[in-house]
Design a protein around this nucleic acid. Sequence first.
DNA 1: CTGAAAGCGCTTACAG
DNA 2: CTGAAAGCGCTTACAG
Lengths: 340, 340
Amino acid sequence: MSTIRDVAAKANVHPSTVSRVFSGNARISDRTRRRVLAAAKALNFQPNAIARSLSVRRTHTLGVIVPHVFKGYFEDSFFPQIMSGLLDVTYANGYRLLVSGCESYSDEIVQTLQILATRQADGIIVTSGRLDVNTVGELRVQATPLVLIGQPPEQHSDVAWVDADNCEDTRQVIARLIELGHRRIAYVGGDPDTRVVKERLEGYCRAMHEGGIAVDPSWIDYGYFAEDGGYQAVQRTQASSTPPTAYYAANDLMAIGILRALRERQIAVPDAVSVVGTNDSPEAGHLSPALTSLHVSYREIAAAAAQMLIDAIKEDVTPTGSRIFSSTLVERQTTAVCPG
Amino acid sequence: MSTIRDVAAKANVHPSTVSRVFSGNARISDRTRRRVLAAAKALNFQPNAIARSLSVRRTHTLGVIVPHVFKGYFEDSFFPQIMSGLLDVTYANGYRLLVSGCESYSDEIVQTLQILATRQADGIIVTSGRLDVNTVGELRVQATPLVLIGQPPEQHSDVAWVDADNCEDTRQVIARLIELGHRRIAYVGGDPDTRVVKERLEGYCRAMHEGGIAVDPSWIDYGYFAEDGGYQAVQRTQASSTPPTAYYAANDLMAIGILRALRERQIAVPDAVSVVGTNDSPEAGHLSPALTSLHVSYREIAAAAAQMLIDAIKEDVTPTGSRIFSSTLVERQTTAVCPG
DNA sequence: CTGAAAGCGCTTACAG
DNA sequence: CTGAAAGCGCTTACAG
């Protein structure tokens, strides 16, 4: 591969002149520019992006770690939606995405810190659902800017973040089920150690409290975001002496598992039991019965996070502030008035 | 951020010694190593990955361009499956993924060439479905190694690639439908300019020919991989004087659209008409009726492609050879014997 | 085992 | 507008 000096030699100019032609923002005479461009073309020269990055201390790259810690991560619509939002904005701003895998929640942080510390990216989007105070503290120490998808712990409320209003959204969903006459309502969360799952649980509890309903602990279950987790949750909760007449699941995959278990048990949906999913994945509307689901705009959330990050990078400031996106319940065929 | 010289100064050694401690593969006395590590820790030093990349001419990064050219790209299971396979292998080998968006098929090539030429990645995975001879030629000129997901044009048959056996797989699916008694079988392709869609069409034609069935041109339609495309295909094909009794769709999204259109027209599936999708997305089994679909292991295909690329990079050779993964038809509830 | 030096391929402040 | 030089932060062949 040819370098800037090869081109310079061929065009009979100084390497710095070649650099100026390619970096764009310098006054160069037309004659020189043409000579350089011709030489570059002849040598098939393209400036080495890594060398440029080292020199200008900018990679035009945003880092993101993909957890895929739970089974079915790549079957859920969360991942493609996040990637879609991230790619739209990075592409539009001339940025790329540096994506790393990881093998556990703790490794997710290790990978994040590594990208931050080694400056392979100009900024990073953190999607971990399990950030504790110390972890966020560690992340902040690094000079590389970051934006969270999800709320930070209170002690770090000034870290930039974007998220849905999980607690309030879930409260409204549960309130709607109560409005439909349901009182024995199950909450099927994902990973209980995850912030979003805790926030949704709080919304659930709040709505139940407001509805004057004492929560039976057997109604709270966790399916770890997996289809089978939803299935198992039905097996357990329906065995209770106060079986739920409605299920709220923290993603659609679990809702699908719930529907499968109910079908097996010949419990009619929505006549006997109602089911609500979360995320409104593309298939939700195509299921039969079509799944009622809380539509969370993860695509927009990710896009907003990327934009906040890029803006901060461009202005060379620490990203701050937060944005909350509201979600809407898309009522389809799995919810109805409580029987009896 | 501190550099190698800050650490060197603090530890009272030469910068090269610090480098040796961090690059791992050099003999360093325990005493020195400890001093350096202590100094590094005190200064929160982490080697700059970009500088290292420039020096060793390795980025430990694989490039990939995400087309999302067609509507619904992020709703299909193709993307998450590819990413999943890519991430598994890159992560296991200490690599990362450099992902770029693009806005058209031609821009996809532009982006690919750019990553190749500017050496931001050690290799690249090309997923474009529309590679012509010249484009592949251009890509090959670059020194950066590449592996295709999908077959290259014949003139470049020595370029490394991984794919399913699209033609043969589709031939078998159609043969199966013929075995079930169907003769008026529709082929609903994605983007007709795409190689995979042409290959599948060939398999379709071959099976029809073997079955002694003259193909009615009205049975061949294109839904551009979108749900609505499948829906429209039914509107057109059912208006024909020889309406199909079976539909083969080149992805599940279109199959879902086909099912929707048939439901609207009150055409019973599978009693009156059979439907087969492709890719066997997670939702296929959860639809009602559950969708019969050709299971294509894009996850494995992507993983194999990444592994071929990384192996070649590590051995510093041009990737060569190819791997073909077989697909299997998962028969569920949308296929049955042809009535009458 | 450790140091000193040259180099990876760019950029940019400083002169002129 | 262009050149000469120093620098971005590492690595590594060469000595010793």
